[in-house]
Amino acid sequence: MPAIFPRWTNNIPLAVAVLGPFALAGLVGFVWYYFSPKYTDVGYRPIQPVPFSHKLHAGDMGMDCRYCHNTVERAAVAAVPPAATCMNCHSLVKTDSPRLKLVRDSFETGETIPWVRVHQLPDFAFFDHRPHLAAGVGCSSCHGRIDQMTIVEMDQPLSMGWCLECHRNPEPNLRPVDQITNMAWDPATDGKAYDAAKDPKRKRDVNPPEHCSGCHR
């Protein structure tokens, strides 16, 4: 009768002992890298129904974000602008561009433009733009250099760890409140020169929540 286990099986325990840790480390590394919101979320950039370019409007023409996202300081949501906002200009310029057909139709019929949502937190997390802008956190800290994007993409993971990273140490991300929409503000240089604690316009210290009910209400 031949042996049930051939001779080479003697090497299995050794192989497992030697390769197992590598395989485990590989698996951990794989999950750590590929399951992170830095992989799953960052870089998401859906194709929009109208080829609207922030690079052209906010970058080259230097329009302020609040011209279009005008509720951002007054409401929790920044809101994508209605067609009427585009028509302020596009009733006078590029009036017959085929790329703007949807905007013109929407303005006339009231039918909404089906913009695809880019940044979206899960429904169990609470976010409000107002306190962040009032505290002097700039759009670019959370949305990246929108003024250089032809198509909007996610620049930050918007994960809980990312929120908390800033909430634990907000100072490096603060800037004078009148600079919040300034995309060229560089935290590395301008930020170093600015000390929020010494700004006379600030009436109180910022106090971002780190307790669970701050964001899960």
């Binding site: 890298y33 992170s36 919101p37 830095k38 992989y39 799953t40 979320d41 960052v42 870089g43 998401y44 950039r45 859906p46 194709i47 899960p122 993409e153 996610m154």
Partner: peptide
């Protein structure tokens, strides 16, 4: 990480 994609994030 950070590669561009048109597919919605997978959670």
């Amino acid at each position: 990480q950070g590669n561009r994609s048109e597919l919605p994030p997978v959670h």
